[in-house]
Design a protein around this nucleic acid. Sequence first.
DNA 1: GAAAAGATGT
Length: 722
Amino acid sequence: MSAVPQPTISLASRNFKSLPAPKTLLKTLSSSHSLTHFKQIHAQILRSNHSHSHSLILKLLLSSPSLTYSLSIFFHLPHPLPSISTPFLRHLSRSSKPELAFFVYQRLRNEGIRIDRFAFPPLLKAAATVGGLAEGKEIHGFGFKSGFDSDPFVQTGLMAMYLGCGRLLEARLVFDKMSYRDIVTWSIMIDGYCQSGLFDDALELFEEMKSANIEADKFIFSSFLSACGRAGNLDYGKAIHDYIIQNDLVVDAHLRSALVTMYASCGCMDMAQQLFDQMTPKNLVVSTAMVSGYSRHGRVEDARLIFDQMLEKDLVSWSAMISGYAESDQPQEALRLFNELEVLGIRPDQVTMLSVISACARLGVLDKAKWIHLFVDKNGFGGALPINNALIDMYAKCGSLERARGVFEKMTRRNVISWTSMINAFAMHGDANNALIFFHKMKEAHIEPNGITFVGVLYACSHAGLVEEGKKIFTSMINEYKITPKHEHYGCMVDLFGRANLLREAVEIVETMPLSPNVVIWGSLMAACQIHGETELGEFAAKRLLELEPDHDGALVLLSNIYAKERKWQDVGELRQLMKERGISKEKGCSRIELNNEVHEFLVADRNHKQADEIYDKLDEVVNQLKLVGYAPNTGSVLVDLEEEEKREVVLWHSEKLALCYGLINGRKDPCIRIVKNLRVCEDCHTFMKLVSKVYGREIVVRDRTRFHHYRDGVCSCKDYW
DNA sequence: GAAAAGATGT
């Protein structure tokens, strides 16, 4: 713990004739807001003969606009009694800087000043809030020595402290030793299990509580429900709801909020909407929960409807709507909303900024990214760790690995997320070498990699064909780091072997993995088969995939392509019919290009752009130029129900080619053409980009669904391995 | 004199 700042007392107010009475001073304190004014009053008190008045000192401590200033006042009190220190501790523990309570505690301990048992709940609350296990344990030890550890309030505080530090077992130990437990005690312990997703333990305890004749209150149900929502556990959530109905419990606004939130987080929007409709008036929190529920489940328009109907909106609701657009892949709308917020003069907070940065990352426009970065720095968010982590990701996804690295290098503190973001950045740009170097550096810096870090590292290996390295890392993840592989890890391994044409090994992973293969796994295997022309296995994988997700467009297209190749026209016909009936088509390709601070969007065969004629003329010219160096359109990736000639046209009108031609026409100042595409780049476009980079001497950066391609002088950074 | 709950983010 570092030193505490000394008080600087301004003696600016010399023009008073007589000293005010304590009552007047107390009143002045309540109305004083600025620190300067506050210091003046403090000086008055010091010069008066009331400086020993307990109530005045306490009022000073609790009403100072600066916590560090009140801490320095406290440090100048000669021998503070519990009647001063305990309320002060409570004040600090509820403040925005609960850790300041530890300074007070340390002073009292160092100087052997009396601490009463009422001081323990606030101290433990501070430790619980900041997750300070070391401080919490020290306070626990001192409480034990002082004989306060049998006090139920101290014990409940201890439980909350251990739970706040993630120590479920220690909390339970305290709980089991308690001789008197009230509803708060039970609530905290049950909430502890809920927070960790241990619903069975929570319910078991809930039953025990009922046996102990303690009546459940709305707090318990709220925490149950919120935990169910976070864990996406609809079954338990419904069970709690049923219990509430069956027992005819009063559902107040708070509890109804919790119910709506639970249903909304579990994606059960009909149920959420039904409960929401019954609410009058609809409060801010519950409306916000509906906004985030709808947008998280791909219904951002419904979210917007509720957002627009809200009579009052606070920063949280704005943030929820902004992040809704960001996550629904409508980053432009997210940024537009952020602009609106600016116009209204509402200051964004860190969470808003994280959503905005994430929107910018999805948009992939480097100019916008630079602008956001400036905004972040200007508004004082630049020092925050989560912000910098998000900036790394943003720059990487906007195509600037250098800037991502720049942010990383400048950071004074880095956590797992910082390192993981940087590793992912390298992986995304096909720089597996640096991804692995940073993985090692991270370990040298004593930052423990987590499951997500390994996804990034394995992804880097699979996209660079580093089979042996990938195998080693996968094994060390399990054996050394004791991380149980999840679907994404197995997916990376299937990808790693599949891309390297080791399909037998890939199948072995699928067959031996302890989890049941999901859409991602079958998708990886299917993609590998597609690359290596393994029709039989590809057909098998596609069929398994369709069992899990009958509308998967990729699998349907692949299957029909396989059948077409094998001339099984009847199967092709059936599949086409099925797709028509269900209204399934390949997701429309869409490409964006940034030019002169404007973003231009193109769809396949798009003619909406105002310079469309020019663009198509340019395309003809480029195609003719490329044909001179041997280019021939490759139609392998086009949907089946077209004639060969039509396919050739469609492939030429792919959105990224249109965006590229627009870039060639207009962006002569910028040495680099940056394009963002929503789907994977097709074989033909990949070749096309390489040739253009050579023939036209331009650098082209294309972001596709998962990664970047840097084309320069006829070569792509992915080494044609993507 | 004391301890618990609902919405946003990497």
